[in-house]
Amino acid sequence: MYNLLLKEFKIGVSPFFYVLPFLTGALMLIPGWLYFLVILYFCFITIPNMFGGYKSQNDLIFTSIMPVTKRDMVKARVSFIVILELLHIVVAMIYSIFTLHLYPDMMYIFLKPTLGFWGLCFVMLAIFNLIFISMYYKTSYKYGAPAFAANAGAVLFAGGAEWLALQNSYVSDLFKGAGSDNLGAHLLILLAGIVIFALFTFIAYHIANKRFEKVEM
C-alpha cells in the first residue's frame, strides 16, 4: 500500500497540483468572498485532471499487472485523494488566519472563515467523496459522470449552507455575527465535520472496494 501511495505521489498527478492549494488558498485573501469556492476548486480542477491522467496513461492496467491487491489499489487511491483534500483545507485555513486579521471589521454576506466554516467544508468534501469514489469504481476509468454528480452534490451542499445562513437569523449569527466568536460551538462543528468526512470517506472506500472487485480490465 505504501509503494502504491508513493507511486501516486510520483506519477499520479502533475506537480502543479501540489502547488495549486497554495494558489487557490490565496483566494482566501479576497475580503468577504464565497470561500466555499476555494475548496471547490479542488473538486472542479484537480479531480478531473487527475483521473483524466489515470485514464490516458492506462494506469489501471499498469497498476494491475504489478504484485498488488485490488484492495490496496483502492486504499492508496482514496488515501491520496484524502491527503490532497487535507492539503487544500489546511493551506486555506492558514490563509484564513491572515484574512481574519487583515479585515477584522468585515461585514460578511457569505460565510465567515471560522472553524465552524471549515467543519462545513469537511462535510462538503465528505459528500463529494461519497459520490465520486463510489461511482468511479463502477468502471475505474469513467470519471466524467462521477465528477459531475459529486460536484453537483458538493455545490448543492455549499449553496444550501449559504442560503440557510442568509435566511435563518440563528445560523447567520453563528457564522457571520457575534456567534462566530463562540469558539466552543465552532470547534464542535469542525469536529463533527471531520467525523462526517472520515465516516463518508470510509463508506465510499468500502463501496469502491466491492465494486472494484468486479471490475475487469
Partner: peptide
C-alpha cells in the same frame, strides 16, 4: 503504453 510522458528513470523508480 503506460505513462508515456514519464522518463524511463522515473518510471523505473516507481
Amino acid at each position: 503504453n503506460f505513462y508515456t510522458r514519464t522518463k524511463v528513470r522515473t518510471l523505473t523508480n516507481v
